[in-house]
Amino acid sequence: MLLGIIFALIAGSLVGLQNIFNSKVNEHAGSWATNVLVLGLGFLASFTLGLLFEGKQLFRLHHMQTWYWFSGVIGVGVVTCVVQGLKRLSPTIAISIVLASQLGFALFLDSIGAMGLKPVPFTLKELLGVLIIIGGILVFKFSGQQESQQSEKAS
């Protein structure tokens, strides 16, 4: 269990860094061009590491199903929805909704055992855990917002 959590923490730290880097790119370039750069480099990196670890095995796609070829659509959906949400709402509200929705949907997929997941029964424990985490996001995000407004006024 610990190993799984460590992997999730690594992924989360890199996602956090990537968000900062991508927004720096987005300051100068449009969102479609940013999308192309981010996904293009993601592809190059995955392909290189895949070749390194798997060699020729990387090209052996035995149990390929048709919808796997369209999974990239989800990635474009992520970038588009998050960017549009951020454009229309304040960053604090937008990101809080994104994070809460991520967690809520995870709980839903886990409890119905979607896409070959082992179903995790939805109990009071799950509900409590997720509500406390969402509460934590709100405390974290909304107090941060006040702080930045105060420092803007001060400067």
Partner: peptide, 25 residues
């Protein structure tokens, strides 16, 4: 990392830990 974590501890716990690391950064 994400895929390995989901295989080991399920989606909810993976996303929760991921959020903590993301907000900490």
């Amino acid at each position: 990392s994400n895929v390995t974590a989901i295989h080991k501890v399920g989606v909810t716990l993976t996303i929760s830990a991921l959020l903590i690391a993301q907000l900490s950064v």
